[in-house]
Amino acid sequence: MSLSKEDAARGYWKENLRFMLILLVIWFAVSFGAGILFVDELDTIRFFGFPLGFWFAQQGSIYTFVALIWVYVWKMNRLDRKYDVHEE
């Protein structure tokens, strides 16, 4: 299947947006969700000696952020190739 250049660019962009949105939902959930909005509820749960909400606010969210960027890097490199828009 050969896509025209415009179709490829459009498909690439669509998939990129969908993937970005998923990652940003996780980004929001671990920090604003677990670390702020639901912190009191989660604090009733113990997690390796931490109240869980507090752990998300001071540790867990940061680990997740690092992981999110690397997943993004890995996935986008594949996406670049799939739609043949990668750098030579």
Binding site: W27, S31, G35, A57, F65
Partner: peptide, 18 residues
């Protein structure tokens, strides 16, 4: 103090993706 921890790291996710 968590506002600084999350605030000064979470921005990099936005930077990397947006």
């Amino acid at each position: 103090g968590s506002v600084y921890l999350m605030g000064w790291t979470g921005g990099y996710v936005l930077l990397a993706m947006c």
